[in-house]
Every structure is written in structure tokens, then in C-alpha cells.
Write a protein that binds this DNA or RNA. Structure first.
Lengths: 165, 165
DNA sequence: CCTTGACACGTTACGCTATAACATATCGAT
DNA sequence: ATCGATATGTTATAGCGTAACGTGTCAAGG
């Protein structure tokens, strides 16, 4: 996958985060409208919460935030909103962390490869299409037909790597 | 990674499972002995339980089995044994499933790529070194230093694929 | 021998993650 | 205006994982 002009910068790079957020949110809204999805208040707010930082948030963390905004503090409230976002490609689930993050490329076909910093908890969604191809090849030689994949790595982001020396 | 003579067959292939199990167990024991690891009764039994099927088992499933063998039915019993096995490369954790499986290549450096069948729950540990390389490349271009990775795919194994047509 | 320290195990208690199930409300199309 | 589909409110509970502390065991060194 090559970088397109509309691609947001990688999480680890210093960037104008409010522009980054706005860009993704706008694209998510356009995509929702185009596909007849209902981006209701909880759902939209949940997406905004996920977009606030380049970190994965647990469902209960999201729930706390939603409760602060007046929504009911019941697990299904958060899980339903998160599941909706994940189902429609507006968010991703990070299995290693039992957590969720906003999708940085809503509406584009891509296999996300997550880089999770153990130093600062930052999380980047790297282009994983090459990785996915290698995985498809491995699966094919076993006669396995892939439906979905999760590709996640933990380690140190550039900044934390620097600090650790 | 090329196939070595001692490599066990892939989970999806029909094979002599008791030989497969025995082989892996012997290698695990050799490796434990060589590294001064203590493969105590709970730990050994836990590994045997994981080896019984090519499926991932939840910690509480393992716990039930252990309890049947006379060990205490307390979560830490299972988690400690499982953590030991994972820490020393005798088992893997499958994050998508919150479950564990025996390592099929104990003692050899490898990055496992898991293929999880949604039809029959079978789980194969495919060679993931090519995938890992692609991942390293993606990480490198973001300046990220990878520590560990999880590579997992869900889909249909050859048999279930056949049945689904 | 016996002390000591590291490691393993027993046990209690608890916290976090996730979903089932059912009631109510809202939306959108006919 | 009605009706079916979708979304939300709410209660309860299931499943996954760990903290913390006490006890036992074993091997090395005094």
C-alpha cells in the first residue's frame, strides 16, 4: 500500500492532532452517510473519544467517558457502540490489549498492522498489506481460507526507543 | 522457514496424533532438561492437556481438566502453569481466543502464525517467519522496534471449506 | 547437619472484560 | 397511521485474569 495524500500521519510522528482527528471524523461521517449507517450520538461520541489520543482504550474506559457525557454507565452501552464502529470499519479491536482504537483509514480497504509502544502506550496503525500477503501465502500452502486476521506487535516507538538508550 | 524432518505435520492434515504428541512432548522435555527448567507435575500435565487436541483451550478449561487430575481448582493453578509454558516457549497464547495452545516447535526460534478454523475450532501453527519479516519491514519504516508480535487469522480449514461449499 | 534463599504451590479474594436477555423507544418506509 | 426493523435502557451474570500472602520444597553453602 502506498501513501496517499489523504493518509493521516503515523501516530508516532509529531503532527497536528486536531486536524488529524477532524480529517478522520469527516471521512467517517462521509462514509457513514454514503452507506446508510446511522452514526447516532453515542456512536459518534464513542468515535470521538477513541480519536482523542493515539492509544487504545478499554471498553470500560470508554464507558466512563460516555458516562461523563450523560450516557448510561452500563457495559452494553459502550460495547454496542464499539461493536458498531468495529463492524463498519470505523474502529479496530486490539486483541493483545482487550481494547479499541479508531480506524485511521475509514472507508479504505486495508489490513491494519498495529504497533503498540510499551513505553508510552501509543498505538500506530501501520500499513499491513504486505504482511497480509505473506500471511495469505502461508495460509494458502496449508489450504486454509482466511476470513480475518489480527496483526499486532509490541515494542518501542521511536521516541521511547531514544529514551531507553 | 523450510520444513525440517522433525517438524510435526500441520494440524489440519490427517496424522498420527499420538506420535505427534509424543514427539513434541519429548522435545519439550529435552529442552526443559537442557535449560534447567523444572517441568513439574502440574506443568507437564498442563502441556499434555494442551497437546491432546489441535485446539486452543481457555485457562478455565485447562483448570477443569487439572482439577479432574487432582490439582486444586483455583485459577492461579492453571495460570501459573500456562504462564510458565508460554514464558519458556512450550506454549503459545492465542489472543483472539483468550486461550492457549501447545507449541509445536519447542526449542526452535520461530514466529508462529496461527490459523484458526471457525468451522471446527482446529488451530494450526503455520510458519510465520516470512510474515514476521514483512512486519519488521513495516515497523522499521515507522522507526518502531518490535519486541513481540501476534499474528493470527480466522477462517476455514481445508476440511471445513470443503463442507461449506 | 542445618540454615538460608530461591522457587513452586495452596488459598482467598477481587477486579476487569464481555454478553445474555428482555423491555422500551425511535426511525423510516409503506 | 401502522408496522417492522433498528437502536437503546436496564438487570443480571458469565468468563478471563491477577494481587497478595502463606506454606512447602529443594539445593547450595556455611
Amino acid at each position: 500500500m502506498t501513501t496517499r495524500p489523504t493518509d493521516p500521519p503515523l501516530a508516532f510522528a509529531r503532527h497536528d492532532h486536531s486536524a488529524c482527528t477532524g480529517n478522520v471524523l469527516a471521512r467517517a461521517e462521509a462514509m457513514a452517510a454514503g452507506n446508510g449507517l446511522r452514526l447516532t450520538p453515542v456512536r459518534r461520541r464513542t468515535l470521538e473519544i477513541l480519536l482523542e489520543s493515539h492509544k487504545a482504550l478499554g471498553a470500560y474506559e470508554v464507558l466512563d467517558r460516555l458516562a461523563g457525557d450523560g450516557f448510561a454507565r452500563q457495559p452494553p452501552v459502550a460495547y454496542r457502540a464499539l461493536d458498531f464502529l468495529v463492524d463498519h470499519g470505523l474502529a479496530h479491536r486490539i486483541r493483545r490489549l482487550n481494547a479499541f482504537c479508531a480506524c485511521m483509514h475509514p472507508g479504505t480497504a486495508h489490513v491494519p498492522a498495529f504497533l503498540i509502544c510499551e513505553g508510552c502506550d501509543a498505538l500506530a496503525e501501520a500499513p499491513g498489506d504486505d504482511v497480509a500477503r505473506a500471511m495469505q501465502a502461508a495460509a494458502a500452502s496449508a489450504g486454509f481460507d482466511i476470513d480475518r486476521m489480527s496483526i499486532e506487535a509490541t515494542g518501542l516507538c521511536p521516541a521511547c526507543r531514544e529514551g531507553a538508550r
